[in-house]
């Protein structure tokens, strides 16, 4: 049996009131949803809260899921995306998005990125360098507009195909491709600028 069919079956069982099926769905999807939330929100605590909210919403609205219109994977991505956009709007005033020096996601108590990159001490080892690069990319990702960010996350980090992304974001496939191109290019420009500042 294919993975999509297994999921469909689980959904049906869950709707019928099978608690074990619901647990199975949570086990299958929590990692993926957490990663989308984390890459979008940039904070582990926010990502955890958002993931919980996503699953609560999924549980409550599962009856509205129509397997003929889209796969469960696409549907849960749509729910996640809607919740993330709501969260983005709610926290718009609280965010400090002016500087790339703003707190990086994975280690919140760490120094600003530019301070760490300016370090003239001994060269860090490969592991530390990779970690810093990841934090730098994550920080740049936070600088993208939500439209570009979600498209890039779904395509380049979640490996969704363009059709699925178009369904999840409810925009034409051409728009999705355009957003992905612009998102990638904008990200590269931001990172180049950061490197130019610190070098």
């Amino acid at each position: 049996m294919e993975d999509a069919q297994v999921v469909e079956l689980l959904v049906r069982r869950c709707i019928a009131g099978d608690a074990a099926a619901w647990e199975e769905i949570v086990q299958r999807f929590n990692r993926r949803i957490y990663n989308i939330c984390y890459r979008f929100a940039g904070s582990p605590t926010d990502a955890e809260d958002l993931t919980q909210d996503v699953f609560i919403k999924v549980y409550r609205t599962m009856a509205s899921y129509d397997g003929e219109r889209a796969s469960f994977n696409t549907w849960i991505t749509t729910v996640t995306r809607n919740l993330l956009v709501d969260h983005f709007r709610k926290t718009k005033n609280d965010r400090i998005t002016d500087s790339i020096d703003a707190a990086p996601g994975e280690s919140e108590d760490a120094l600003p990125l530019s301070d760490r990159l300016e370090d003239t001490g001994p060269a860090p080892d490969a592991h530390l360098e990779r970690r810093e690069t990841r934090e730098l990319v994550q920080a740049a990702l936070q600088k993208l507009s939500p439209e570009l960010r979600e498209a890039v996350i779904l395509r380049d980090l979640q490996d969704m195909d363009y059709k699925e992304i178009a369904q999840a974001l409810r925009v034409p496939e051409g728009t999705v491709k355009s957003r992905i191109n612009r998102g990638r290019a904008e990200l590269a420009r931001l990172l180049q600028r950061t490197y130019r500042q610190v070098m």
Binding site: L141, R184, A188
Partner: peptide, 12 residues
């Protein structure tokens, strides 16, 4: 730039 951006995202 798009290629570079994709490369950067691959680091995540």
């Amino acid at each position: 730039e798009a290629e570079a951006g994709l490369h950067w995202l691959g680091q995540l």
